[in-house]
Design a binder for these strands. Sequence first.
DNA 1: TTGTTATGCAAATGTATGTTATTTTTAAGT
DNA 2: ACTTAAAAATAACATACATTTGCATAACAA
Lengths: 203, 203
Amino acid sequence: MHNKLTVVSMSQEKKELIISKANALIQKSGYAAMGMRELAKAVGIEAPSLYNHLQSKEEILNQTCFTLGRKLLIALEEVNDIYFDAEQKLRTAIRNHVEIITHDLSAAYVFIHEWKHLSEPSLSEFKQLRDKYEAGIREIVEAGEKEGIFKETDLKFATLSILSAVNWIIEWYKPEGTMTPIQIAEKISDFILQGLTRDKRFN
Amino acid sequence: MHNKLTVVSMSQEKKELIISKANALIQKSGYAAMGMRELAKAVGIEAPSLYNHLQSKEEILNQTCFTLGRKLLIALEEVNDIYFDAEQKLRTAIRNHVEIITHDLSAAYVFIHEWKHLSEPSLSEFKQLRDKYEAGIREIVEAGEKEGIFKETDLKFATLSILSAVNWIIEWYKPEGTMTPIQIAEKISDFILQGLTRDKRFN
DNA sequence: TTGTTATGCAAATGTATGTTATTTTTAAGT
DNA sequence: ACTTAAAAATAACATACATTTGCATAACAA
């Protein structure tokens, strides 16, 4: 019987490599379907060696979901503090969101879709984080309404529409494509602000 | 050695029950994470009995993805045949889509997210179906542009934005909520056509 | 009644799962 | 060169997986 405490790796580099490879596999086949042996092979080691760096499979999920969640939330709170009018706030928030999400698509996929597989209490904690982010977006829309820039809308609905547009990116974005993340963000902002209809003022 | 041919059930009722329960479980925990034992328990039989009605687990995925895919495609093709101006086409297409998706949320979830787990050749076939649907939406946007109703946009991008809005519904829609599917469809259409910005013509 | 088919269950098959215990190799610090 | 700790490997564990086999029952047609 050994006095073996929890193993905590010193080199975080490897851990990040593992999580990054894991996210890629999860994006391809889902969290539940990703096997630790498969992951180990992708990293170039044997499955049990993973546990020199991780406590469990779920730690991967935890890491990715919360790291990305906090990153998004911080960026959003910064926007809500600094910028002045609502349109600029919204455009900046969207640009930040798009940049963060496109910067690591696999992680974004995990964050957006696979958080369901978190177990309590992480699950509740994560939902709270998400709600907070959603509330931040809603704040901007609300401000825009009060400023008279945005039309009166169902706040909840408008917020969800914005989130749908920015989160759906992971379903189609390819880094090799022609549009840069910033260009995508601009197009999405235009779309959300103006819609498809031709502006009749200039006709 | 038996001469046991493929088992094909006569009562399709039960099969539909199984698939419906399966979709609910898949929505909750994902296709890979749903176990046949768990499904059997939900149906009220033992796991091996499922195979009196199904050939395999994947048949569930197949059924749901293709049934819903065909349903959506047919509805869209009807719209593209009948209605005249592009705005009406788009509004109708969106309404159909929303109605179909909200009618069976679990199935919609499987259709939108879990098709990845299909294996060849079904996978390629399904992708083709999806592409066809996307092309149908793009046709409408293209027509709107030519009619001068819609502004000139990146066709691909506009199409994806529309699909993102209607597909994201499954992430938040609750049948107990206040909005009916038709109301949701209207709001989405308005949002896509007009955007958030207040119409300055009437100010 | 008899033959047939649909449906179910219990038992078992082979494989894959996440993970632990234990040992060996590698690398760094002295 | 010696020590120490980190990282990897081997072997194994318990459990869970989708599925098959073989057999029983119930419904129904002849």
